[in-house]
Write a protein that binds this DNA or RNA. Structure first.
Length: 476
DNA sequence: ATGTAC
């Protein structure tokens, strides 16, 4: 992106000034290098989002932003229903409630070494991964509805994990307001045999070592210490969420113009929050979000089963589970007035500071754990939410490294075998059924996650707590 | 992201 046309607000924030149809400015949190590396499409998409009815304050982009379907990935946008605000399927994305959860183990890096092959093979065999992967679970209609209403709470009730897990999941493990009746038969059908599957693309299951601690007191409260091993799961709502997004994106294109919504790009696909289709989408989207929470809960149970068998200890406690593709109704102070707005975070993680209502009770004084997943073979980070993020970007932070190359570009540049070999030499074990998938997800296809996190920290969106390096990575 | 296109 050409920085000459942006207003530099401070070291870490750049403004796309209001022009043309834009109702609010765009604000990009980035270093000069990161913003310079962003495609002009990001600016175009942010300007389009800033032109949508009812948008408040600004359209935001996190330092990992890159262009996506309609809205940029790494984007945050809030809309006020009292000012004709909209919801958009493209503003949440196709993988509804895709997110990360991190579990703590009692093991150190040294403990893992003799068990490395057994754990890698055990996880690879026990956790279904890949395109079209299916589970040994089969849900009937009644169970599917209960799952869509109950999220991770349903999963715990069905025997996957413990009640204590729920306190460490966003929204207590269940999004309120889900409307399973708005999830089509087709979407349900796709999920009948996909509960407890990892999926493909950038989704993964990783064993990671804590390599650095930046804030010892917070790391201690989170249960993190240098040399400890954790398990992170990155995945979403699989076929069901994708089907919900597909159907509503289509419906919004058809019904949006009836509400006087004119789009610069049909992928912006928006309808008023206060319309039948807007309410249907919001209810269906939250049901899909519950599906993702239940899915990650079941996957964690599978991980615990493997740890129990291989190490004799399956008691992994949950640090946190947070989505980075979701729209939620939240109260924010905007221009001195508290307003209820619908915040779309697409490739952006919520980042609640100390004292916020949804921070787990035992972490209330510290802030919400913010889980940042790196790309395959690179580091991940644990951060903590800040009070400053509330005023800067509706309590939001980045979500990962962010792509800098398309899948096809990455596939042309990399052979899957070479990527696996390169990582093996760095003592990182990759288990995948798809060498093509590995080539598409090669580290070279992503920005430098360290640089993204540095900006996130320096801009006050979240603060660094610990860094994680991959040991074993199970890919879809 | 996705039974990897309508």
């Amino acid at each position: 992106m050409n920085t000459a046309t942006l207003n530099r607000l401070d070291d870490w924030a750049w403004e796309i000034p209001k022009s043309g149809t834009m109702r609010v400015p765009g604000i990009i949190f980035a270093s000069e290098e990161l913003v310079g590396g962003m495609d002009e499409k990001v600016r175009e998409q942010m300007s389009n989002v800033a032109s949508l009815p009812g948008i408040v304050q600004a359209a935001y982009a996190m330092p990992d932003a890159h262009w996506g379907y309609g809205f940029p990935i790494g984007g945050v946008a809030a809309f006020d229903p009292q000012e004709g605000g909209v919801v958009s399927a493209g503003g949440v994305g196709f993988d509804i409630s895709c997110g990360v959860r991190t579990l703590l183990t009692a093991l150190s890096v040294e403990d893992i070494e003799p068990l490395r092959a057994q754990l890698a093979d055990g996880l690879f065999q026990h956790v279904p991964a890949g395109v079209g992967s299916t589970s040994r679970l089969r849900l009937d209609e009644r169970e599917l509805t209960a799952m869509l209403n109950g999220g991770a709470r349903w999963a715990v009730g069905a025997g996957y994990g413990q009640p204590a897990d729920l306190g460490r999941i966003e929204q207590g493990g269940r999004y309120d307001g889900a409307d399973p009746a708005q999830v089509s038969g087709e979407a349900r059908h796709r999920q009948v045999d996909e509960m407890g599957t990892l999926g493909s693309g950038n989704h993964y299951l990783e064993l990671q070592a804590v390599t650095d601690v930046y804030d010892p007191a917070t790391a201690d409260a989170f249960g993190l210490a240098v040399g400890a091993v954790v398990v992170s799961i990155h995945c979403g709502s699989r076929g069901l969420g994708h089907q919900v997004a597909t159907e509503f994106a289509r419906r919004m294109v058809i019904e949006g113009p009836g509400y006087g919504i004119r789009l610069a790009d049909r992928e912006l696909a928006s309808v008023p929050i206060d319309s039948p289709v807007g309410r249907d989408y919001f209810g269906a989207m939250l049901a899909a979000a519950n599906c993702a929470l239940a899915n990650r809960q079941i996957l964690a149970h599978f991980v615990r089963e493997v740890f129990e068998r291989v190490t004799g200890d399956g008691n992994l406690s949950l640090l946190y589970d947070v989505s980075h593709n979701v729209c939620s109704l939240e109260t924010h102070e905007i221009a001195g007035r508290r307003r209820d707005v619908y915040v779309h975070r697409k490739g952006a993680t919520r980042s609640l500071g100390p004292g916020a209502a949804d921070v787990p009770a035992d972490l209330k004084a510290i802030g919400q754990p913010v889980l940042i997943g790196g790309s395959m073979g690179t580091c991940s980070y644990i951060l903590a939410g800040t009070a400053a993020s509330e005023t800067r970007a509706f309590s939001s932070a980045c979500h990962g490294a962010g792509r800098c190359q398309s899948r096809s570009q990455s596939m042309r540049q990399n052979r899957g075998e070479d990527v696996v070999e390169r990582l093996r030499r760095r003592h990182i074990t990759i288990k995948s059924r798809s060498l093509r998938g590995v080539a598409e997800e090669a580290p070279t296809a992503y920005k430098d996650v360290n640089a993204v996190v540095e900006v996130t920290h320096a801009a006050g969106l979240a603060r660094k707590v610990a860094r994680l390096a991959p040991l074993i990575c199970v890919k879809g």
